[in-house]
Each structure stands twice: as structure tokens, then as C-alpha cells.
Design a protein around this nucleic acid. Structure first.
Length: 315
DNA sequence: GCTTAACCTGGACGC
DNA sequence: GCGTCCAGGTTAAGC
């Protein structure tokens, strides 16, 4: 059975009791949401369940193929952690209404938004996002997934689930004490010393410092993050957008740059992603899509990522 | 303020 | 089988 097969029977596991979540006004497409490049550690099991972790809990999610108005969930080891799931999936944000506004504002993107209904932005634990994206530089999504998975397997704690152990993301303390040699063998390469140094600095300031960034305005939050070693504008925007509720943040990478240049050619922008071009691209998204521009950007990014994958498969 | 090179590594691709 | 290129970036040096 491959992972693309339609699986429309709720997985049955010993001692597992699924909870159902109805989401009439805040649709969810689990597959696109968990594979759109904002997180790297959710794995689809053979029975169709998605298995991953959120902070210090493991979680299982399941949804019939093609369905976006409900899904099933459970958490481990503490069962029935709906608050955790709801916060993680940003339930309460009316995505359909947003997409309607985006299409009205930018009809060129209508096809993309109607193809990807239910792709939601996650609200991830800051530590996982901060350290995972350290691995993204000059890398492929497949290799980032492997590297981050190895980091968790070696330095994370295990949580038991009916599918077996799930490795929780390591704490700042664990990463600060990690071995550079071990991380290098886990495909982190030259990024290994960077992530360890970053963890040491966060450890000195206290992890609370990271979480308190959510209270700052976007600009101050971004400046605080880019002041950290190894954190450029793009990674800081990833953390702002995926963890700290800065929904107007636009992480501009090669894909986002190409997409913007194709959709909205700008006289000034060159092919290099200089700070000026970076700011121009971000502004062009915010002008079109408003306060939730980061949500719109993620859907457009996912579409561009799939386009680029399809091109490479087609040769 | 812009460009360039260095930093790791494995998969894809051409030969 | 082998060589080359490229991939969600950051940083520092040189111009």
C-alpha cells in the first residue's frame, strides 16, 4: 500500500479511542497542512493516520481522503488534549472567508486558493521551529525531514502511541549539549555547530525569552530573532509566522521570489535576494493580501513547491 | 548596497 | 560508474 492510496476507514488500534472534530467554518486539509513545508516531522502511517508530536505530547490525526470539514484525533500520553490540537491547527480562523478576500484582491491566484482549501498555518512550539529551520539552508525538504528526524531520534524523549514510539522534539538544553560529530553524521553538515551555538544562547537567556517574543510587535520580534547567530531574515520570518502569530510575516525564499516575479513583475527586483528585494517581495504580498498575507503566502508557496516537484519528476 | 564564495551532503542527471 | 549540479540560507569580505 502506498501513501497516496485512498484510505477511508478509521484506523483501528488497541486501546485507541478517536475523538471527532467538526470544522464547518475552519476547514482543515491534514495532508496539505502537514506537508506544505512549515513542519518536517509528521509521518503518514500505512493505515492513513498522521503521527507526530506537539511539544511534550505525541498526537495522531486522521481524516478521510478528500474531506475538509472534520477529522479525528488523539493525544499521548495525556489523552483528549483538544486544546493542544486546536491551538496547533489555529482552529477558529475562518479560512474560507480569508480565501474569498484573497481571491477578490488578487484574481490571478484564484486557481491556487480553490485547489488548496483547508491548508492551514500551524502554530508550532517555538523551539522546534527555530532549530528545525536552521537545517534549511542550501538543503532539500526531503533531507531536512531526515536531519530533523534524526535529531529527535537521538536527543528527543519517546512517547508511546498505539503505532509505537514517537520521538518528541529535543529541548533547548538537549541540543545545547548535543555532539557536533553526531549531528554531522545525522546529515546536519556545516549546520551542526550553528544549531548547537544557537541553543546555547537560548539556554543562557532562558526558553521563556523565546516564548515572550509573541507579545512584541512584528518588527521588534523580527529584529530580536535576526540578532541571533545563524538567523537571517528568512528564518526569522518563518519563526514569526509559524509560531509567534505574526501573520503578516513573509519568509521569502527562492520559490517565493520566483512566484512573485512571475505573478507581479517588479521593475526594481533582480534575480538576487538582496535585503532590498527581500523587503519589496514581502511588501508586495502584504499590500495584496493584508494582515493574513503570511497565510496566503504559505498556500502559494505550497503550490509552487508542488509545481517544482512535478517539473523534476516530469524531467 | 550589491556580489561572491564558503559551508556539507545526497539525489538527480548526463555521459 | 563517475563527475557535476543543485537545494527553502547565512555570513563575511571585497568592490
Amino acid at each position: 500500500m502506498n501513501n497516496n492510496s485512498p484510505i477511508n476507514y478509521l484506523p483501528v488500534r488497541a486501546n485507541l479511542r478517536w475523538n471527532r472534530a467538526d470544522c464547518t467554518h475552519d476547514e482543515v486539509n491534514l495532508t496539505s497542512t502537514l506537508t506544505c513545508g512549515q513542519t518536517f516531522r509528521w509521518r503518514r502511517q500505512q493505515d492513513g493516520a498522521w503521527l507526530g508530536s506537539i511539544g511534550c505530547q505525541a498526537a495522531a490525526l486522521w481524516q478521510p481522503d478528500g474531506c475538509v470539514d472534520h477529522f479525528y484525533w488523539q493525544t499521548f500520553p495525556t489523552a483528549d488534549g483538544w486544546d493542544l490540537i486546536a491551538k496547533y491547527l489555529n482552529m477558529g480562523i475562518n479560512l474560507r472567508q480569508l480565501q474569498h478576500q484573497w481571491i477578490m484582491a488578487e484574481p490571478l491566484t484564484a486557481d491556487v486558493f480553490t485547489q488548496h482549501v483547508g491548508l492551514r498555518l500551524l502554530r508550532q512550539p517555538v523551539e522546534e521551529c527555530l532549530y528545525s529551520f536552521q537545517c534549511a539552508s542550501c538543503n532539500t525538504v526531503t533531507k531536512i525531514e531526515r536531519s530533523v528526524g534524526e535529531l529527535a531520534r537521538v536527543y528527543g524523549a519517546a512517547a508511546m502511541t498505539p503505532w509505537g514510539n514517537v520521538w518528541l522534539f529535543p529541548t533547548t538544553n538537549s541540543i545545547a549539549h548535543a555532539s557536533e560529530a553526531v549531528l554531522r553524521t545525522a546529515l546536519w553538515g556545516y549546520r551542526a555547530p550553528r544549531v548547537i551555538s544557537l541553543a546555547k544562547i537560548v539556554q543562557e537567556r532562558g526558553v521563556g525569552w523565546l516564548n515572550e517574543l509573541v507579545d512584541l510587535p512584528y518588527k521588534e520580534c523580527h529584529d530580536a530573532l535576526t540578532a541571533l547567530p545563524g538567523m537571517g531574515a528568512k528564518l526569522a520570518d518563518c519563526v514569526c509566522l509559524f509560531c509567534l502569530d505574526k501573520w503578516g510575516a513573509i519568509p521569502v525564499d527562492t520559490h517565493v521570489l520566483q512566484l512573485a516575479q512571475r505573478l507581479w513583475p517588479m521593475k526594481q527586483t533582480g534575480s538576487s535576494l538582496t535585503p532590498r528585494v527581500y523587503a519589496q517581495i514581502g511588501d508586495s504580498y502584504r499590500q495584496r493580501f493584508g494582515a493574513f498575507a503570511g497565510w496566503a503566502q504559505q498556500i502559494l508557496f505550497y503550490s509552487e513547491l508542488r509545481r517544482s516537484r512535478d517539473r523534476s519528476v516530469a524531467g
